[in-house]
Simulated assay, not measured.
Amino acid sequence: MARQWGVISLLLLLAVGYVVGGSGMWDSVSNDFMREDKPYGVGDFRVNGKSIITMKLTKPEITFKPREERSDPNRAEPSEPWMSNVGEFANRRSVRILSSGLEGEVIRRFEEPAQRADWWLAPDWSTLYLTTGWSDRAAELPLGQSYRPELTQLFKSTDQGQEWERLRWPEEQNITFLRFIDPQRGYLIGWGPRVWRTRDGGEHWDELPVPEGSRNPENPRQQFDLVALGQDNVLRMAFYDHAADVSRIHALPWGEDISQQAFTIPGHVVMDIAANTEGNVYVLATQGAPYFSLPSDERDAPRPSVVWSWNDDSLHKLHEFPPELKGYALYLTPSDGLLFDGVNESTLLGNDVVAVSYDGGGSWKIEYEGRSAQGGYYDVQTGTRWRVEGYSLYRREIP
C-alpha cells in the first residue's frame, strides 16, 4: 500500500509539472560573511563582483555585570539599566550601511537611529537612497492617540555610501517604501497611503492622488498591500476591497499624475507583482481576505499561493501551489522565466523553496533549498541567487 501511495504521489507531481530539486545546488562563496559587525545580522545585502553593500537594521548589544557586581550572583544582570527597559532598548536600534569584500574588512559607512528603514540602490551602485523612521518608544502615548509620533528622514549618497546628504523632507510624513526607475526618477510611498514623485533626484517632490478606496478614514497609517515598479516603468498599487471581496490593482505609468484601475483579482491578497518591458504583468497572490481581517477561527484555514497573469486585456490563473508552499516574492529571470520564492511551512523550522517556470507559468520546477536562511536575495539582472546560513555565503544560478 505504501508503494502504491508513493507512485500516486509521484504521478500527481508530474501531472502539474513539478520536479523536486535536491541538495548540492549551492556554491560556497565565503565562510566569514559579515562576522565582524556586531550584533550579528546579515541585513539586506547586494553583491557586485567581490564587493558587498548592506543595509542592516540592528539592535543594541546587551552586556552583563560580572558575578561579583550582581545583586543576585546567580542571576544575569545587564550592565546598564536601559538594557532591561523594552522602550529604551527599542530607542537604541539603528540602521547601518556597510561595505565589504567577500572576505575583507566590514566598513561602517553610515549609522542613524531607526526602528524602520528602506533603501534603493542603483543597478550600477552609483546612487543610494535611504529612509529612516524613529519614534520614542519609552514615552507615553499622546493623549487621545493610538500611535506615538514617528520622525522620518530621507538620505542620499552618490559615492557608494561614503558620503551622505540629508534631503529636505517633513519629519512627520512617513516614508515606508522607495521605488525608483533611476537615480533621478522615483516614488516615495507612505502611510495614508500617500505617494510622492521626484524627477530631479530628490530635490523636489510632488504628491500624487492615490486610488479611490485605498484609504481608511479610521486608520491614518493605512498602507497598500503591495507597491511594485515594473520593468515597463509603471507603478502598480494593490489594495483589498472588503466590500467587493477583491484586490484592486491600479497602474500609474511614468509621467502621468492619476492612476487607473487595471484589473481586479477576486478573493485574493496580492503579495507581489512583476512586469516586463512589454507590460505583461504577473501577480503572486494568497487566497482569501487579509489575514488579520479574518475571524480567529478562520485564520488557520489553508491559504494557497496562486500566480496570475494580466496581458492588458484579460486575467488568467496560471497556477495554484499546495497550501504548505507559501509564496513571498515573484521575479522575472533574465531568460524570461518566472521565479516563485517562498517557504515550505509543513516542516517545524520551515524550508526555503523556489519554483521556476520557463513556459509562461504552465509547468513549474520546484526546488527545496534547505532550511530557512538568515538572508539572501535574487539578482534579476544576472540571474544569481544568494543565500546566507550562519556565517556562510552561497550562490547559485537561476537564468
Results as ranks from 00 to 15, higher is better:
G87A: 09
E103Q: 14
A2W: 14
G133K: 00
R248K: 12
L121I: 13
E68S: 15
T152K: 00
P39Y: 03
F177I: 14
T384K: 04
V7F: 08
P334I: 07
G161R: 01
T347L: 12
I258A: 14
H316N: 10
L318C: 05
R67P: 03
G383Y: 04
L229T: 05
R70C: 05
V281T: 11
L348C: 08
R303T: 14
L208R: 02
E36G: 04
A90G: 02
L208M: 09
E218F: 13
F64Y: 15
R221Q: 14
G87R: 09
W164S: 03
S259I: 07
V306G: 01
F177N: 14
P73R: 10
G21R: 04
A275N: 02
L128D: 07
E320A: 13
V343I: 15
T63A: 05
Y129E: 10
R387F: 04
V86N: 09
G144S: 12
F263M: 08
T132F: 08
P217L: 05
D297M: 11
G288E: 06
A117E: 04
F64M: 07
S357A: 05
S335L: 09
G255E: 05
G17V: 04
E105L: 08
F110R: 03
G337H: 06
G279C: 07
G362N: 09
S357C: 07
D379Q: 11
F224E: 00
V269H: 02
L284G: 03
K326A: 13
V353W: 00
Y328Q: 13
A238S: 11
G376K: 01
L167D: 02
I8E: 13
G22L: 11
G376N: 02
A15T: 09
D136F: 01
E203F: 12
A15Y: 12
E397P: 04
P295Y: 07
Y391A: 10
A117G: 04
Y40M: 07
Y40R: 12
V210K: 00
E367H: 14
G342H: 01
Y368E: 15
L143K: 15
V210M: 03
S363C: 02
L235Q: 07
Y394E: 03
R248C: 10
S314P: 00
R199C: 10
T286Y: 06
W82K: 03
A139T: 02
G21M: 06
W196L: 10
S309R: 10
M271D: 09
A251V: 08
I258P: 08
K326D: 08
E345D: 13
S363M: 07
R96W: 12
W26M: 05
S23F: 10
D341A: 06
I398K: 01
N91W: 02
G161F: 04
Q162V: 15
F263R: 03
G161A: 10
E171V: 11
M83R: 03
Y378V: 05
T63S: 14
R395F: 05
L102K: 00
E324L: 12
V306L: 11
E103D: 15
E150C: 12
R3D: 14
A275W: 07
T127W: 02
W308S: 05
N276V: 06
G362R: 13
Q153R: 11
E77T: 06
R197D: 05
I53P: 01
S84F: 03
N85C: 07
A122G: 11
